[in-house]
């Protein structure tokens, strides 16, 4: 698993609520059997003016100039500032894969859909949940910073659970201890669970005795 420690980067706005996973990565690009290469199709329907095909070279496609990630001031953004219920819809991990492949390593929003939130941690992406009022303020500051995008960099420090804004303000955030531990150290969570293999086997034996019909072989 990829780790996340400290990130200093430009933030880009995704200023709408209920951004769904179909919007993050449209379904026609899910046909790949790999984990990588989804970045060029991140937000495909918003980013390009034409209809994209899987496997297509995206470098010559017409860009939507109104879409923030296409604008020079947000070039190289690694933080996405977003609204409520980000990542709703499908369980497709292709959504965080596309964000990560594009270069987004942190999302800041008032709330997330559960499955997406969980999937982020598995891919070295830190989704930060902040009060709506604080997110509103960050949006306002971000929009007011036009002309000096390099200056609007946020520093996100997972160990200390803080975001430092360009004005020097320190914003604390909450994160689950176990997820923080895994993300900071880039731990393989399957290996972590397998450390408890004996407990799983003990449970399994007990459960098999109580519910033998669940262990019928299906063939």
């Amino acid at each position: 698993m990829k780790s996340f420690t400290v990130l200093k980067g430009i933030a880009a706005p995704m200023d709408r609520a209920n951004v769904d996973t179909d919007l993050i990565i449209p379904k026609q690009f899910l046909k790949s059997i790999k984990r990588s290469g989804f970045g060029p199709n991140l937000f495909d329907g918003l980013r390009y003016l034409d209809e994209g095909e899987p496997g297509q070279d995206c470098s010559n496609r017409p860009l939507n100039p109104d879409f923030p990630l296409n604008q020079p001031r947000y070039k190289g953004a690694s933080v996405l500032l977003a609204r409520e219920n980000f990542g709703c819809g499908s369980s497709r991990e292709h959504a965080p894969w596309a964000l990560e492949d594009f270069g987004i390593h942190c999302i800041i929003a008032p709330s997330y859909a559960d499955i997406f939130y969980n999937n982020c941690f598995k891919n070295g992406i830190l989704p930060i949940e902040l009060d709506k009022a604080i997110v509103d303020r960050l949006f306002a500051e971000l929009y007011a910073s036009e002309g000096y995008s390099e200056e609007f960099e946020l520093t996100v420090d997972l160990a200390s659970q803080t975001i430092e804004t360009p004005s020097g303000e320190i914003i604390p955030f909450e994160v689950d201890e176990f997820r923080k531990h895994c993300l900071l150290n880039g731990l393989d969570d399957i290996a972590l669970t397998l450390e408890h293999a004996d407990a799983i086997r003990t449970y399994e034996q007990r459960w098999r005795q109580a519910s033998p019909w669940l262990f019928d072989v299906i063939r």
């Binding site: 984990r35 499908s90 369980s91 497709r92 991990e93 965080p96 499955i115 969980n118 999937n119 598995k122 891919n123 969570d189 399957i190 669970t193 397998l194 293999a197 799983i200």
Partner: peptide, 13 residues
């Protein structure tokens, strides 16, 4: 519903 990393996690554990 779960993501693919968890699909692998459940297969393995």
């Amino acid at each position: 519903g779960i993501g693919t990393s968890d699909v692998e996690h459940v297969m393995a554990t």
